[in-house]
């Protein structure tokens, strides 16, 4: 099932992305970045709003533009694009606040059936990882593309 998502722009290495959220609060430019954490091909996934005046990226702001599902779908599509270019990579994701981590968990649970055939997804519980299960309060997430 193709979910609505925004058009992505990216550099040639598909590490940094931009897209524009459209809603009642107008146009909000958002950025997604995959940052290499270590030599084991583990990348951190983060995204936030670009301040139109300063140009800085804020991952704490709540923009409330009425399109959170479309934004999440767009981030998921960026993950697919990134993994298409970097098939050996693993992706780590952690919310900037506990509330955001919970939002990621809800989003993962919602889209789990769509993505479980393509990704091995893990959730962190205190000091260990386990395969992601809906309904559990994970602290962070890790995903790796399944190689066909």
């Amino acid at each position: 099932m193709q979910l609505p998502k925004y058009q992505l722009k990216s550099g040639r290495e598909l590490l940094s992305y931009e897209f524009i959220s459209q809603g009642p609060k107008g146009l909000i430019e958002k950025r997604i970045q995959f940052t290499l954490l270590n030599q084991e091909e583990v990348y951190n996934l983060a995204f936030g709003d670009k301040d139109p005046i300063t140009g800085e990226i804020d991952d704490l702001v709540v923009s409330n533009n009425g399109d959170s599902e479309k934004v999440l779908s767009t981030v998921v599509s960026a993950v697919y694009a990134f993994c298409d270019k970097h098939p050996e990579a693993s992706i780590f994701a952690l919310g900037s606040t506990p509330a955001r981590t919970r939002l990621y968990r809800i989003g993962l649970a919602k889209y789990f059936d769509e993505i479980k055939d393509d990704f091995e997804i893990y959730g962190q519980l205190e000091d260990q990882w386990e395969l992601f299960e809906k309904g559990k309060e994970y602290l962070a997430f890790l995903a790796q593309r399944k190689l066909s």
Binding site: L8, S10, G11, L14, S16
Partner: peptide, 17 residues
């Protein structure tokens, strides 16, 4: 039908890497 999206390449975004 592909889940891999069509991404517009903007070379200026390479500076963010």
């Amino acid at each position: 039908t592909s889940k891999v999206p069509i991404v517009i390449i903007d070379k200026s975004l390479d500076e963010l890497n």
